[in-house]
Simulated assay, not measured.
Amino acid sequence: MNLFDRIREGLSKTRKALGGSLGGLFGSFSRADEAFFEELEETLILADLGVETSLRVTEELRERIRTQKLKGAEEIREELKSILTEMLETGDRAPRLGTRPSVILVIGVNGVGKTTTIGKLGSLLKAQGRRVLFCAADTFRAAAADQLEIWAKRSGIDIVRQHEGADPAAVVFDSISAAKARGTDVILCDTAGRLHNKQNLMMELNKISRIIDRELPGADRETLLVLDATTGQNGLVQARQFKEAAGVTGIVLTKLDGTAKGGIVIAVADALKIPVKYIGVGERIEDLVEFDPRAFVDALL
């Protein structure tokens, strides 16, 4: 199954909901009047693009129809695809992993699929020929390291862990030491998801960052925020808070196969101007894929 087919399969619930509505809208299309734009806006909002983004899309489409003198349903539909694709082309989606080792910090609240994402991402990077090391720096959640160890065994990836309640920065230090000794390409670092207030989150991540800066000066680093697509607009609220607190460089959207509101991907990219780098489109280990805006919009519509 190629990338497009995997994304298409994972977006089946959203496509059925959004595609059905848009299919009816364009199927009965006669002209781009107010009734058309109102129905389009409502359809986009129901797909979880959010009010602001949906308004922006409809206004941009309205302007392009006017300036390009678009008339037919198919050319208007293609222009809608172009607008959505452009909204998703935010920043550099390629992970910065040029140094050995590079570091990926994975952050997000509990329950979004953070540890599972690390397992799948580790497998993806390994398949690309990189040597990966898991760092179990979520020492607060019971059995977080155990869960990551299961993924490590499943993927054939080394893991560094300590006891529950250990200092996360100490686990990061041990992981860097191990990575240097083993010639590791990428350290994939799990972090705590229950640091509810911004100050605690900042303190913990700053402590980890100081260790990385001291032990790996100049190393490439990504901070990936994992969001659960099924939480919709609540995920967008989380993303805003983490962006302010943690210097997020990319978004990973999980559980897209479990929602009929996959438009949240567009809402997040449009609102935060942070690139979506990976999406989760199923439960299999290979169902975390690098994000491709055009393939996503094509699969969506």
Rank of each mutant, 00 (worst) to 15 (best):
E59L: 10
R56I: 11
L49F: 12
E59C: 10
L80H: 00
K81A: 02
T53N: 07
L80A: 04
E59R: 15
L80P: 00
R64G: 05
R62M: 14
K81I: 08
L61I: 12
I76W: 00
L80Q: 01
K69P: 01
E79D: 09
L80D: 01
G72Y: 08
R62A: 14
G50P: 05
R62Y: 12
T58M: 09
E63W: 02
E60T: 13
L70C: 06
K81S: 05
T58N: 04
E59T: 12
E79I: 07
L80K: 01
S54Y: 02
V57A: 01
I76D: 00
R62H: 13
R66E: 05
V57R: 00
Q68R: 15
T58F: 02
R56P: 01
E79M: 07
R66Y: 05
L61P: 08
S54D: 04
L55R: 14
K71N: 11
L61T: 08
L70K: 03
R77F: 11
E60D: 13
K71C: 10
L49S: 04
R56M: 14
T67P: 07
T67F: 12
G72E: 14
K81L: 06
L61W: 12
E79G: 02
E79K: 05
E74H: 02
Q68S: 13
K81R: 14
K81H: 11
E75W: 04
T67I: 14
L55Q: 14
T58G: 09
G50M: 04
K71V: 15
G50K: 02
K81M: 06
K71H: 12
V57T: 06
L80E: 01
Q68G: 08
E52D: 15
E63G: 10
E59N: 13
V57S: 01
E52I: 14
L80F: 07
R56V: 03
E79Q: 12
E75G: 03
E74Q: 11
I76G: 00
D48W: 03
I65K: 02
K71Y: 11
E60V: 09
I76T: 00
I65D: 01
E74C: 05
A73H: 05
D48Q: 06
T53V: 15
E79P: 00
L80I: 08
L61S: 06
K71I: 14
E52K: 15
E63Y: 12
G72H: 07
R64W: 02
E78R: 11
E59Q: 13
R56K: 15
L61A: 10
V57W: 00
E78S: 09
E75M: 08
V57M: 00
K71E: 13
G50I: 06
E59P: 05
L70W: 04
E52Q: 15
R56H: 11
R56W: 08
V51Q: 10
E52M: 15
E74P: 03
L55F: 14
L80G: 00
Q68P: 07
R64Q: 10
G72C: 05
R56Y: 10
R56S: 14
G50D: 08
D48R: 04
R62Q: 15
E75S: 05
